[in-house]
Simulated assay, not measured.
Amino acid sequence: MSALRPMLATATDHLPTGPDWVHEVKWDGVRVLVDVRAGAGAARMTSRNGNVVTPAWPDLSEPPLGDRDVLVDGEVIALNERGVPDFRTLQHRMHVRRAADAARLADSIPATLMVFDLLRLDGDDLTGRPLAERRELLAGLGMTGWQVPASYDDGAMLWDATLQQGLEGVVSKRVTSRYRFDTRSRDWLKRAHRHRGTFVVGGWRPQVGTDDRLAAVLVGEVTPDGLAYRGRVGSGITGATARRLQEMLAPLTRTDSPFSDEVPRVDASGTTWVEPVVVVDVDTHGPGYDRLRQPSFQGVRSDLTPEDL
């Protein structure tokens, strides 16, 4: 039998309102279905792609309800140095399969399982019941070790709160929604925060298969120690935007990197370095990280110089 895959949310640019919806924090982690069969004595964890990932999470595999039969949907999270859930913190753990390595990383990078849906309980399939009922049953289980995050009636309030706290965003769910495996549903809507920052271009990379058509720029942040590398930005750079950027950067070519720190080889290879004078705005998925997350080019800031930053 093929592995179950979780129900997914549809992206939206606005949160729904009214009594038909509840709202939850969008966690920046790894989605899992956790299956505990009566008498098995251990949890079986599968990823959103249906892969078994139990060995990576020995600190989460102890069922909080003992041998009670349950199937839950949730997100594995880990906190970064700022105390905020961060997918990149988990990347050190998520592909580990050797028991000794997994146990060592569980000590240095502790994980938490946020359980937000109950799909089976004591042999009863709950997927056909409305979300409100599933959540009520989940809250009444009294889990210890796994956490059941709160849901909220006020989506606008949660949107503002998650923005202030540096969290990923909000998921809104219709209270009457049934759970449908391996489906992207409009009964669940997700909206992630985007943050705009201003950076300096230090190089550009060509489109794959060409040597001379700009496809991405390498950008940095002005710091007291120089221009610190923050990542490569390709999204949003097409057509006329790419041509204008290339014309602007062509006279600024130099032979060495203008960044004060080392640029990863995967980014440096094939890059044309430029004098760091062009300032651009970039939208990113979350502030405060060494590398930009899901960056999107927004435009050149002709009103600013690097000295202004």
Rank of each mutant, 00 (worst) to 15 (best):
D303L: 06
V278N: 05
R205N: 04
A216W: 04
F297T: 01
V278L: 05
G236S: 07
R48P: 06
A268H: 05
V217S: 00
R174K: 11
V32A: 13
D69H: 14
H95D: 12
T271K: 03
K26D: 12
G66D: 06
L167F: 08
N49I: 00
P224G: 10
G234K: 08
D290Y: 09
W188D: 02
A132R: 14
L15Q: 07
V34D: 04
E24K: 04
A40W: 01
H14S: 14
D283N: 10
R265I: 05
F259N: 05
A215L: 02
D125N: 09
R31I: 02
G239S: 12
R93Q: 03
V201L: 02
R129H: 14
V53N: 00
D283E: 15
T223L: 00
L118D: 12
A268N: 06
E24H: 07
D211S: 14
H193F: 12
D154G: 12
L60W: 09
E136Y: 00
S296L: 09
R254V: 11
A192K: 15
D13K: 13
P6R: 08
L214V: 02
R191C: 00
G18V: 04
D107G: 09
P295V: 06
V222W: 02
M7P: 03
T46L: 00
Q298L: 10
L65W: 10
W21G: 04
N80H: 06
W146N: 03
F116L: 01
G231Q: 03
A150S: 14
A43S: 15
L79K: 12
A3H: 07
R37K: 09
L252S: 01
D101T: 14
K26W: 05
T46C: 02
W146A: 05
